[in-house]
């Protein structure tokens, strides 16, 4: 049953990658990469159960943290072209 779940997750990852390559705007790509990261987290956890190595869950936990930070950082980078505070006082620094 874990094999079926991991096969489903791999199919979903492939479909998400197609969207990340097609995506007309940059936001579609960011969304697709974010969902791909979530699916990768699930795949790591399921593979840990499949191979009876629950240490994989630590990697999955770290992957969840990094995925969130990376999505926010990429969005901020594409909005401001840098990662620091905005130069103008335009109240958009908390995007």
């Amino acid at each position: 049953m874990f094999i079926a779940a991991s096969a489903a997750i791999i199919v979903a990852m492939a479909l998400t990658l197609i969207r990340a390559m097609l995506g007309p705007t940059i936001y579609d790509r960011i969304l697709a990469v974010n969902l791909f990261g979530t699916k990768a987290l699930l795949l790591i956890a399921v593979m840990g159960f499949l191979t009876d190595r629950p240490e994989f869950l630590d990697i999955a936990l770290v992957y969840a943290l990094i995925n969130f930070i990376a999505t926010i950082a990429v969005m901020k980078f594409f909005r401001f072209a840098h990662l620091g505070h905005p130069h103008e006082e335009d109240n958009l620094g908390d995007l």
């Binding site: 705007t25 629950p54 869950l57 909005r79 995007l95």
Partner: peptide, 27 residues
Amino acid sequence: KLALILLFMFFASPTTTHALARAAIAG
């Protein structure tokens, strides 16, 4: 550990979606 993953994604996923929607509107 699984509960921690679930708890973190419970907060992180809406935050990401909200920030992405705001960025798309601003873009």
